[in-house]
Design a protein around this nucleic acid. Sequence first.
DNA 1: TTGATAGGCAAGCAGTTACTTGCCTATAGT
DNA 2: ACTATAGGCAAGTAACTGCTTGCCTATCAA
Lengths: 98, 98
Amino acid sequence: MVDVGDVFKALADPTRRHILDELAERDDQTLFEICTRLGTKHQFTSSRQAVSQHLELLEAAGLVRTRREGRYKFHTLDTTPLAQIAERWVRTRPQENP
Amino acid sequence: MVDVGDVFKALADPTRRHILDELAERDDQTLFEICTRLGTKHQFTSSRQAVSQHLELLEAAGLVRTRREGRYKFHTLDTTPLAQIAERWVRTRPQENP
DNA sequence: TTGATAGGCAAGCAGTTACTTGCCTATAGT
DNA sequence: ACTATAGGCAAGTAACTGCTTGCCTATCAA
């Protein structure tokens, strides 16, 4: 079970949301792929290190999973934390309180 | 339409989540009520100004609505921003991308 | 009118965050 | 072996955050 605060913090940054958008469009991307596609497709220029640090944070929040293959590191979107947040913060809140 | 970033930022802080919890349990509370109940029921002591500033931020994010009545200001939970972020970030993400 | 209660305003401060800069390691191609 | 590529590490910095402190305004009860 991930920390809800970490997930919300991760989602609070626009660059990180763009990264998640990008990974939602195309999974299994390397750091450099994400960087270039953020610039070309999302008009959002960020340095390699900036994106790298964002990916670290996203991984810590459980939103991104990584897989090493040679000198490449592939990044994959993991939506289970989002589902957990929805469970706690969206579905239950309007009608009932446990 | 509220800013998604503001909502996530608002939800990123544990104190603010406690405040929302408190408002979910009992709606239409004044600042002082929220302060005392945060302490007694949630074991979460925060000063008046701290809570006040959190409420300001929550209101800016659209998660709390206020109503003045004499010298009292009542705070009400508004869940529509949660529904909106669910629409954008939870329901659509796992299967499809628009 | 006086005092108490509910809340607001704004400056200051310590801790955090997003980003840069510079250098280093590791894998792969030639 | 040498060079280019993919990525990591860590210190530094400017901006932001959460909170405190001190004072001020407004409403109500006596």
